[in-house]
Nucleic acid binder design. Structure first.
Length: 293
DNA sequence: ACCCTCACCTGCACGC
DNA sequence: TGCGTGCAGGTGAGGG
């Protein structure tokens, strides 16, 4: 259930092994995965393409594909709809349980393998997703930035656009609570339920504080905390995950969660018991003493 | 524009 | 052992 650091990790891992590989065949076993495109249309479009880039926008994975001249239907004239659309991007969102696996020919296909990309080197890139929330779609490069879901995203947290002025302006326009706002990918990009909680704890601000009422000092603390939490997680994940397990993540870094999933445990800073409430079906964890409104 | 609830799914941990 | 309940790191739709 990845947030930005986990997605970043998957991107780096993918880049190491699939760059330059040609997709010789593909299978989609779950039609809704590629909706509204049918699996057959999706497969037709990726077959014969070569992976020339792997990157990320927020929590979306972007796999850049180049249509190579020698497509499987090379005997026939290339269909008109590909004219002028040479490169396109496979946009993937892992949602809660999506994972990529890189399998050898003798590896068994695991349960919940909804898409399989057969690569030129006999390996298979498998998309596995037990809860079936993940989505995949093909977008031409020229239309990527204007694609619904991508175009609305807030600036990348480590790029210039996400500066203190941006955050303060964004906060000042919202009457929502910080916890809710931090989960809104069109306002602040990359946090999920865990890192939102952790960032607020680091900044020593209540999750229930109203965004527009945050002082300049506190919003500066929040800005730093968001970047620090994400940076720390990216560094940590990199060191702790082995490729042998596929592109999984998350094994053991509950250890650095300071509030998430720690209901009833003493706060590491003041010893007060960490509290948890749920609203809208999502848990919020915080230290009632360190994080006052 | 916002808020809330539900929906999408499967699996796991828990209490009885 | 089984069964019911609640919960899971994400997002979108639909109603108010």
């Amino acid at each position: 259930m990845p947030e930005l650091p986990e997605v970043e990790h998957v991107v780096r891992a993918l880049r190491r092994v699939v760059m330059g590989r040609t997709i010789v065949a593909a299978e989609v076993k779950l039609p809704k995965l590629t909706s509204p495109d049918s699996p057959s249309k999706f497969v037709r479009q990726v077959r014969g393409s070569t992976i020339i880039g792997v990157s990320r926008r927020g929590k979306f994975i972007l796999i850049e594909l180049e249509r190579t001249a020698a497509s499987p239907q090379s005997g026939r004239k290339r269909s008109r709809k590909f004219d002028g659309v040479k490169n396109f991007v496979l946009v993937v969102h892992l949602r809660m349980t999506g994972k990529f696996l890189y399998l050898s020919p003798d590896d068994d296909l695991p349960k919940h393998a909804h898409a399989i990309f057969y690569l030129h080197n006999d390996k298979r890139l498998v998309f596995r997703d037990q809860r079936k929330f993940g989505v995949m779609k093909l977008v031409s490069i020229s239309r990527l930035k204007s694609t619904k879901g991508i175009s609305e995203l807030a600036p990348e947290p480590f790029e210039d656009g996400f500066n203190l002025a941006y955050l303060q302006a964004t906060l000042s326009r919202s009457q929502r609570t910080l916890k809710t706002l931090l989960l809104d990918q069109t306002k602040v990009l990359g946090l999920g339920n865990i890192y939102a909680a952790e960032a607020l704890f680091r900044a020593r601000i209540s999750p229930f504080a109203i965004a527009a009422r945050l002082s300049a000092k506190r919003s500066a603390r929040l800005h730093t905390a968001i970047q620090d939490v994400l940076k720390f997680a990216v560094a940590h994940i990199r060191g702790s995950i082995s490729l042998a397990e596929g592109f999984s993540y998350g094994a053991a870094f509950e250890t650095f969660w300071q509030v998430y999933d720690r209901e009833g445990e003493p706060c590491g800073r003041c010893g007060t018991r960490i509290r948890r409430i749920t609203h809208g079906g999502r848990s919020t964890y915080w230290c009632p003493r360190c994080q006052r409104r």
